[in-house]
């Protein structure tokens, strides 16, 4: 197999300023003091290799570092140390909503994203129509996006990203929404992508979905890779981790 994403010993720390100035005097005095920061170690020494044609799921609790890793893969964030490298074209669909502009029409929004994603100019129009068609939004083509439902937003985002037809697709929590019919469509698309040797990395909390789609699952906890392997085994490991956490809090509470 051929590796398409390689991350080696990646560290990423965020500095979050403390903001607890309750009184005006404190607020004034705080100007004189240097700002204090909370160091949030999002990733500590993560190494991941993903191969062509793989469909990889990243799972873990909230704040375990999986979304940060996805952003590093996408190149939105730069690691503090360690190396990231990718090959082939890549398209990312991070967080719900995509940053579409509610004041623009459906078509204008897709066209703007098409420019960012860099569709070839000759295929621009056909791909824009393709994306709108895939999202089943032809009727609303010239409607401002703000009058559409959240589910429609996400469908549109997903459809737009698919049209980029890139070698690697990064998806963050996008399958949880959308009605049954659209999910069916997505499943069909994923099989199609797999057949064509595309690589997909997916962050999700929907464990059933992860189990159905993924060839391999990587489990994160506290910024580290805890386990990696076939879906069923890793998911049960994750469930142990979750119930372990619950037991602990349960015992302190009781």
């Amino acid at each position: 197999m051929v590796a398409v994403i390689e991350m080696e010993n990646v560290y990423k720390t965020f500095q979050i300023p403390h903001e607890v100035h309750t009184t005006l005097a404190e607020r004034v005095l705080s100007i004189l003091r240097p700002m204090s920061y909370e160091r949030l170690e999002a990733l500590c020494g993560v190494s991941v290799t993903i191969e062509q044609g793989e469909f990889v799921g990243l799972i873990g609790r909230n704040g375990s570092g999986k979304s940060t890793l996805l952003k590093l893969m996408a190149g939105l964030l730069v690691p503090d140390s360690g190396t990231c490298r990718i090959r082939g074209t890549m398209c990312e669909l991070l967080e719900l909503g995509l940053g579409f502009n509610p004041e623009l029409t459906v078509r204008e929004n897709v066209a703007l994203y098409a420019s960012i994603l860099g569709y070839p100019r000759s295929e621009l129009d056909s791909r824009i129509e393709g994306a709108i068609g895939f999202a089943d939004l032809e009727r609303f083509k010239d409607v401002k996006l703000k009058s559409l439902s959240t589910g429609m937003h996400i469908r549109l985002g997903f459809a737009t990203a698919l049209q980029a037809d890139s070698d690697i697709l990064l998806l963050d929590e996008i399958l949880a929404v959308g009605d049954g019919e659209f999910q069916e469509k997505c499943i069909g698309t994923f099989h199609d992508q797999k057949r064509r040797g595309k690589t997909i990395v997916l962050v999700s909390h929907d464990l059933t979905q992860v189990e159905t789609f993924c060839d391999r699952v990587i489990l994160f906890d506290q910024g580290k890779v805890v386990d990696s392997g076939p879906p069923r085994a890793i998911i049960s490991h994750y469930q142990e981790l979750l119930s372990g956490g619950r037991k602990k809090t349960g015992s302190t509470a009781g």
Binding site: V2, Q52, M73, A74, R87, G88
Partner: peptide, 10 residues
């Protein structure tokens, strides 16, 4: 993909 060069995603 094999023919494509490695790049830094950023």
């Amino acid at each position: 993909v094999v023919d494509k060069p490695w790049v830094d995603p950023s």
